[in-house]
């Protein structure tokens, strides 16, 4: 049940029922303790819980959620850094689990990731030229002789001075570092970029530059983005379509304008109410009640029900399904059934 039914062509990346569980296994001492009568259980975190999504070619899909909701884990599954513990991931209609060797490597290179902290995402002991040039050289995308010119070209693409090639990452500012990280990803000619809070660690002025760079690259290279952020303003500015995630599940997805104009899910409504506005009119500040529950022991039924202002009895034991509330607008809330 993919939300966007692009006619004919399969989506560039699709997830079907993808889950990610992190299990803390019992060690020997705990097992012995269990034998002696205590009741220790394995701790299982469902970081991502049966998520379906589809991203069409050339699209920017925004993924929004509070910290700890599993959006970064989802991004890493898409980028191939983490393996999913359940479900399938399709790249242009092909299951990536079926690919091996050369093919698997090619698909891996087609999907690249930009990380949040540009300091820790760059190897501090490599020079910028090596950071950018390593993967294309190792994978034989460019010859040894052409490498220098290729790195220059990529650096020019992202607006980096090519004379900085022999410097180390720590000699750059945050914005420049993020440009280096982008250049590193672009160097293997990707089609899909996963941006995990890619501008969250930057100054506001630099954020704008990097966001504009993303948009320019999208036009120039025809890139597709999965843009993960907790910043609704950034997502609104950038995305064609937005997904809202809460405790490992997608609770709402819709085209950007539709979502910001008419949010359906109570969680989305609460999030949107909290966007800081420049117009400082007198308004009541009503935060979402309580903390995000621990994913170790999520509430049954709808995960949001302990904090939901419109909670119904059935929310406590029945998991709501994503249902269309308008064209391309999907929401997982029992309230929609009542209307």
């Amino acid at each position: 049940m993919t939300a966007t039914a692009a006619a004919g062509k399969p989506p560039i990346v699709a997830l079907e029922g993808v889950s990610k569980r992190f299990v803390k296994r019992l060690d020997v001492a705990m097992r012995v303790a269990n034998m002696l009568g205590s009741h220790l259980r394995e701790e299982v975190v469902r970081a991502v819980d049966t998520v379906d999504l589809a991203v069409d070619e050339g699209e920017v899909l925004g993924l929004v959620g509070e910290s700890g909701c599993g959006k970064s884990t989802l991004g890493r599954i898409v980028a191939g850094v983490h393996a999913a513990s359940g479900g399938r991931m399709l790249y242009r209609g092909q299951d990536v689990a079926d690919l091996h060797g050369q093919q698997a490597r090619d698909v891996q290179l087609k999907i690249q990731m930009i990380f949040q902290d540009p300091m820790s995402s760059l190897n501090p002991r490599l020079r910028v030229g090596d950071i950018i040039g390593e993967a294309p050289r190792v994978h034989g995308l460019v010859g040894r002789r052409a490498l220098d010119g290729y790195v220059d070209e990529i650096m020019g693409h992202v607006g980096l001075d090519t004379t900085y090639k022999r410097r180390y990452p720590h000699q750059f500012s945050g914005g420049q570092r993020q440009r280096i990280a982008i250049a590193r990803a672009l160097a293997v000619k990707p089609e899909f970029l996963v941006c995990d809070e890619a501008v969250a660690a930057l100054d506001v002025s630099i954020q704008a530059q990097v966001l504009n760079l993303f948009m320019r690259l999208r036009e120039e290279l025809g890139l597709t983005y999965l843009f993960i952020s907790h910043d609704l303003g950034v997502v609104e500015h950038l995305s064609d379509r937005v997904m809202i995630m809460y405790l490992g599940r997608i609770v709402e997805q819709a085209p950007t304008e539709a979502l910001f104009a008419a949010p359906n899910h109570p969680y989305t409504q609460a999030l949107l109410a909290e966007i800081p506005r420049l117009v400082a009119t007198r308004r009541t500040y009503t935060p979402v009640k309580g903390e995000i529950p621990t994913p170790l022991n999520p509430p049954p039924g709808c995960h949001f029900h302990p904090r939901c202002p419109h909670v119904l009895p059935r929310c406590r034991d029945e998991v709501p399904r994503l249902k269309a509330v308008a064209a391309g607008h999907w929401s997982a809330c029992h309230l929609n059934d009542q209307a």
Partner: peptide, 26 residues
């Protein structure tokens, strides 16, 4: 656990290369 290790995995670099060129010097 730093992100450059994930970035290296994302770039499909070999295990040997990740361990000795990225992990070891740091």
């Amino acid at each position: 656990r730093k992100e450059y290790m994930e970035a290296a995995a994302c770039l499909a670099l070999s295990r040997w290369r990740i361990i000795f060129r990225h992990l070891l010097p740091n």
